[in-house]
Design a protein around this nucleic acid. Structure first.
Lengths: 340, 340
DNA sequence: TTGAAAGCGCTAACAT
DNA sequence: ATGTTAGCGCTTTCAA
C-alpha cells in the first residue's frame, strides 16, 4: 500500500488562523504585496518560515493569473550535451527564481513535439526554452506564438528571442585555417540546411572557401541529422569518396564524436594523411591524440544566456533579440600541412 | 501572429455543455472510468479529441488524490552524462505515460537538496528519482520516506528501490587485469566511501588486490567528490607520489575525464610507462589514443530501469529492490605490461 | 490596510 | 449510469 497523508503540510489557512489574520493577508505578505503593513508582513513571513511553509505550486498556478511556477524545456535529443547539459544547467539557474523546469524530449518528431507543447500548456507553464524539431508543425508554431519563448541552437522562424552559437564566422575561420595549410580537397560533414544552425554553418563554410579561392560547389559535402551514428556513417562515406579529401571539417557535437570514431577506424593517419576539425564539447575530445583542432562553444554560456533571456521574456520584455555566443577555433594537432 | 488568450482553452465544462452531459461524466469518460456507458464514453472522448481538449494538469493534480502529472528528478551535477543524459532519457520514457518530469539540481548541497525536495512536494509530484547528495539531511530523508522514490547511482539508506551500476565485480576485474600484467604499484582514484558507489567500488578494489596477493592498505589512494577538476588534481597528486605507481585505476565518469587530462599533461607514455583504466561513458573516450581500457556502463539501461522502477513504485508496488546494471571491463590499449 | 468570498479547472463523494 | 456539489490551496476582486 502506498503511503498517503500528505495532509501534514501547512497551508495559508493554517498560517492565517495561527496569526489571527485572513488568508488574503497571508497571501499578500507571502507575495511581497506592498498593500500589507510591513511590520505585519514581516511577522507573517517569519511565521511561515518557522512553520516550514511551502506554497502549493499547483494551487498557486491554478489560481494566479500569471505564475512562474513552471517553465518548459523542449529538446530533440537526449544524448547530446549541447541539449541535455544545457538543460540541466538551466534548471539550476532557473531554480534560483523558484521556477521549476519541466524537461521534455521530442526525438525530433514534429508530432511528438506538438503533443509535448500541448501538455506543457496544460501545465500552465510561464514560458519555455525550445530547440525546435526539424519539421515543426504550424500548430506548434501557433502555440509558441502564445507564450514567452526562447529558442536554443535552432530557430524556426517565430518572432522570439534566441540563443545561438555564432557559427558562421568560426566556420569561415576553420576553412581559412585549412586552406592556409594547403588543403584544397576539403570535405564537410554538417547538419542540414533546413536547420537554422545548418544554414548558418554552411554560409560560413562557403564564404571561407570563396575567400580561399576555392570552389564551394566542388566540395564533398554530407549533411545529416545530428546524431552520432549519422556522424560515423557520413564521415565514412566522405572518406571513401574518389577524391579522397585531405581535410575533414565537421560541425555538430554528436556528429563530431561519430566522425572521429570513423576517422580512427579508417586508419588514416592524423594529421599526416588527413586533417580533422571537429566541433563541440571540449570534454569529449580532451583525450584524443593528437589533440583535436576543435570549434568550441561554451555550453555554460549558452545556458546562462538562455536562462537570462527567458527570465526577461517572463518579465514581459518583448524587445529581446537573438543572443550569439561566440565559439572559438582551437587549433591543435589534428590539422597539419596538406599531403602533396 | 496570434496573440493567444489563455482563456480560449476548452475545459470539461465546455465539453459537458456541448454534449449535454455533466462535467462528472466527462471527467469519468476521460479517465476511463468503467462507470460510464461505453458508447457515451467513446462519444465524449471523440468529441474531446476533436475540440483539442487537453486537461489542465494543475487542476487535475490539485483535485485528484493522486495524480501522475509530475515526477521529480533530482541530481547533484549538471556536467556529467551519468546524470544529465540519464535524466533526459528518463524524461523521454516517462512522457509515454503522460508524466512530466521536473528536473532539479542540488549541486551536491544538502540544504539546496532539501529546498528542492520541499518544492517538489509542493508541486505534488507523484514520486521521484534521486541521486542523493553526499551529506543528505535527516529532514530530506523524512520527505523521501513519504513518497515513491527510486535511487539512482547513489543510495542513502532509505528503504527505496534503486538502480545502480554493479561496480564491485568489475572493479575486482580491473585490478585482476592489471595484476596479471605484472603491476604491483597500482594507484586508485575514486569517489568517497561515504557515497554508496564509492564504498562499493572500494570493496571491489580491495578484493581484487587480495586475490592478486597484493596489500590493499599499501595502495596509493585518493578519494574525491566526483568532478572533473577533482579528477585532474587527484591524478596529478597520485602520479607525483614517491612510489610512482605503474598503473592508475579511476572510477567515476567526470573524475575519469579529469584524470585522463592529467595523465596526458604528465607526459607519461601510456601504456609503456603507465597503464590507465578509466570509467564511464564510452563516448567520452572514443577518441583517445591509444584507445582506453574502460569500465563501461550503459546509461541507457540505467535510465530504462530507473523509469521502470519508478513507474512500478507509482503503481504502489513496494516489493521493489535494487536493480543492478552490469558494467563491463573493456580492455584496450591503455593497459600494458608493467615496466620493470 | 485588511477581510470575505468568488473563483481557477478538475475529481470524487454523495445522490439519484 | 449519470448528475449535483463540495472541495483541492491558492490568488484576487470587491467591500469594509
Amino acid at each position: 500500500m502506498g503511503s498517503r497523508t500528505r495532509r501534514s503540510a501547512v497551508g495559508v489557512v493554517d498560517l492565517a488562523q495561527e496569526l489571527g489574520v485572513s488568508t488574503a493577508t497571508v497571501s499578500r505578505a507571502l507575495n511581497d504585496s506592498p498593500a500589507v503593513r510591513p511590520e505585519l508582513a514581516d511577522r507573517i513571513r517569519r511565521h511561515a518560515e518557522t512553520r516550514g511553509y511551502v506554497a502549493n505550486r499547483l494551487a498557486r498556478g491554478l489560481s494566479a493569473s500569471a505564475s512562474r511556477a513552471f517553465v518548459g524545456f523542449v529538446i530533440p535529443y537526449v544524448d547530446t550535451p549541447a541539449y541535455s547539459a544545457v538543460a540541466a544547467q538551466c534548471a539550476r539557474l532557473l531554480s534560483r527564481d523558484g521556477t521549476q523546469m519541466i524537461l521534455t524530449i521530442t526525438e525530433n518528431d514534429p508530432r511528438r513535439e506538438l503533443q509535448q507543447l500541448r501538455e506543457l500548456v496544460a501545465s500552465r507553464i510561464a514560458g519555455l526554452i525550445i530547440s525546435p524539431s526539424t519539421g515543426i508543425l504550424a500548430e506548434s508554431r501557433r502555440i509558441l506564438g502564445g507564450l514567452p519563448v526562447v529558442e536554443l541552437h535552432r530557430a524556426c522562424g517565430i518572432a522570439a528571442p534566441g540563443v545561438f552559437s555564432d557559427d558562421e564566422q568560426v566556420m569561415t575561420d576553420a576553412v581559412t585555417h585549412l586552406a592556409q595549410l594547403g588543403h584544397t580537397d576539403i570535405a564537410y560533414l554538417g547538419t542540414p540546411r533546413e536547420l537554422s544552425n545548418g544554414a548558418t554553418r554552411w554560409r560560413g563554410i562557403r564564404r571561407g572557401m570563396e575567400l580561399a579561392g576555392l570552389d564551394p560547389d566542388a566540395m564533398a559535402v554530407r549533411l545529416v541529422e545530428p546524431t552520432r551514428e549519422n556522424g560515423r556513417a557520413g564521415a565514412e562515406e566522405l572518406l571513401a569518396r574518389p577524391g579522397r579529401p585531405s581535410a575533414l571539417l565537421v560541425s555538430g557535437g554528436a556528429i563530431s564524436v561519430g566522425a572521429a570514431e570513423a576517422v580512427r577506424r579508417s586508419g588514416r593517419r592524423v594529421p599526416d594523411e588527413l586533417s580533422v576539425v571537429v566541433y563541440g564539447d571540449p570534454a569529449w575530445f580532451a583525450l584524443s591524440e593528437p589533440p583535436l583542432t576543435t570549434v568550441r562553444v561554451s555550453y555554460d554560456e549558452l545556458a546562462v544566456q538562455a536562462a537570462r533571456l527567458l527570465s526577461r521574456a517572463l518579465d514581459g520584455d518583448v524587445q529581446l533579440g537573438a543572443h550569439l555566443v561566440r565559439p572559438e577555433l582551437h587549433v591543435a594537432g589534428s590539422t597539419g600541412k596538406a599531403p602533396r
